[in-house]
Design a protein around this nucleic acid. Sequence first.
DNA 1: AGGCTATTTCGACGATCGTTGAAATAGCCT
DNA 2: AGGCTATTTCAACGATCGTCGAAATAGCCT
Lengths: 106, 106
Amino acid sequence: MNIEQAAKQLEALGNPTRLQVYRTLVRAGDSGLPVGSLQEKLGIAASTLSHHLHRLILTGLVTQERQATTLICRANYPAMDSLVGFLVDECCVDAPCAVGEGEAAA
Amino acid sequence: MNIEQAAKQLEALGNPTRLQVYRTLVRAGDSGLPVGSLQEKLGIAASTLSHHLHRLILTGLVTQERQATTLICRANYPAMDSLVGFLVDECCVDAPCAVGEGEAAA
DNA sequence: AGGCTATTTCGACGATCGTTGAAATAGCCT
DNA sequence: AGGCTATTTCAACGATCGTCGAAATAGCCT
């Protein structure tokens, strides 16, 4: 995980609408959610949702799988995991802090 | 931590320059770093840095303390901690994943 | 007070974002 | 083939961003 990639993912999550989309997907778990359901749940224009979804997919945070005419969206857990890892990564290289208590600097 | 706040913080970290600033501060640890040193390290205009720093401070990710004429900047670890917590929070409410293995849903 | 250094504020610029409705496309079903 | 639903692409818009240099301010020191 380089800094450019991390910044792109953070930027992708840094929009309220997109963060909501992402969280909804996270909650939905492995079964995922069709674009249409997502749209209903969030109450935004289909084109807007499609746009945001596209960005989320570009950064690797979300994946899609076709099932007939509907597209199932899923949160990409490992991607988030490694993003969080990056955030905590260099934490406290020479100072104590609450987060990395011995695992980050190991 | 609400979604608006989280989005603001993620957006703040979602700019390569700002993420670099933040990470530099994280590495610097509790002793922090003066604005000037930060500027030298990153090689950007002072006004640009000041602007980014301001955004980071507004979201609560960074704090400043005055020491005579120089301003010491510090990463706010607890803030990052709670942001990461938010990200992992609702993870896998009804599906298994690698990240939250029993702590998030507790 | 006067000067000096550190930092911020101001003003500007092109670039990107976020949103939408309308139109185009994808893929099923009869 | 023809129609139907799901989703994306297009075109557009005002709004915000990221960057900079120049000018203003903050606070110390003599």
